[in-house]
């Protein structure tokens, strides 16, 4: 039972970070390989508030989230004007920089790590926060600010011609994703009870991005599915020892080859989402039939 709970908590924690990244990568079209860095900031700030300053957990989570958000504003100012791949490389550099700085701060344990933190993250807290963050993500995407992000992803120039401040939209997406990652990091610190900078290395960052892509860019339900599958998959195959990573890789490759848009790519598992997908499909068919009839004439 303990074990199952552990997996649920891990899924729940990762889900929060993945939802944030889904807004940034899936909806705004900015790929990040440095969100482990924002998680690290959330985790360490939270741990400092709990273990060193003896503050309540809720305040510590908030502090972790806000710190990650503040750092992201600075990072965004420096990097969001970069195009495409350059932004991606800059985030990668940021993630590594955070890790290496933490390696050298003895106040938080340095490279050796920081042990015996109190365990405050419970399964119910995690699930409750998941619910909150899913709703928040959903509401953001279905607002004008969310649509502006999607417009920036789809066609930046046209978005500007539609009066959208593309830089601001990207900034909002980045800050939201960093805050989400900060919360996830905070929960992680108080669940694992120890912190080590390598926990937030580039592999962690790419894992998060893979979950977003696997689930499907531009889909919240996809991100949820992707997180559940990719966090639990290695656990299911735990008996196969090192083979589990092969299965993990294989699953990612099969999805990328068989369904490049990801499990849910752009679609949502909601009644209206399904209705829309069906309506679009039938309209497409009708159109194709009309074209064929026209060609036959």
């Amino acid at each position: 039972m303990e074990y199952i709970q552990g997996i649920i908590i891990l899924i729940g924690i990762n889900l929060i970070a993945v939802l944030g990244l889904s807004i940034l990568t899936g909806f705004t079209g900015l790929f990040s390989f440095g969100h482990g860095g924002f998680m690290a900031i959330g985790a360490y700030v939270c741990a400092i508030f709990v273990a060193r300053l003896h503050q309540p957990f809720a305040l510590a989570i908030l502090a972790g989230a806000l710190s990650a958000g503040l750092v992201s504003v600075v990072i965004g100012r420096l990097t969001l004007k970069l195009k495409g791949d350059y932004f991606c490389i800059a985030t990668m550099g940021f993630g590594e920089a955070v890790r290496i700085i933490l390696n050298n701060v003895n106040y938080v344990g340095g490279a050796r790590g920081w042990e015996s933190l109190p365990k405050l993250t419970t399964v119910w807290l995690t699930l409750a926060l998941d619910l909150v963050f899913v709703v928040v993500t959903w509401n953001i995407i279905n607002s004008r600010q969310g649509r502006n992000m999607v417009a920036a992803r789809e066609e930046e120039l046209a978005a500007q011609m539609a009066g959208i401040d593309v830089f601001k939209s990207k900034m909002i997406a980045l800050v939201i994703s960093a805050v989400f990652a900060g919360v996830a990091g905070a929960l992680m610190a108080q669940y694992m009870q120890f912190l080590r900078p390598t926990m937030f290395n580039m592999t962690k960052s790419t894992d998060l991005t893979i979950m977003v892509i696997f689930g499907g860019l531009g889909s919240i339900s996809g991100s949820i599915l992707g997180t559940i599958l990719l966090v639990s998959l290695p656990e299911l195959f735990r008996d196969f020892a090192q083979w589990r990573l092969v299965f993990y890789g294989l699953a990612v490759i099969v999805i990328m080859v068989g369904r490049p848009q990801g499990l849910m790519g752009g679609l949502e598992l909601t009644p209206s989402g399904i209705r829309r997908a069906v309506a679009a499909r039938s309209a497409r068919r009708e159109l194709a039939a009309a074209d064929k009839a026209e060609a036959a004439e």
């Binding site: 607002s143 004008r144 999607v150 417009a151 789809e154 046209a158």
Partner: peptide, 24 residues
């Protein structure tokens, strides 16, 4: 230059954003 992967309605809806004033 349309927002290619969005529906026709969402293309127009996105551009309507200046008519709304609500914050995030």
């Amino acid at each position: 230059r349309l927002f290619k992967n969005l529906s026709a309605r969402d293309n127009v809806l996105t551009a309507c954003h200046m008519s709304a004033r609500y914050g995030l």
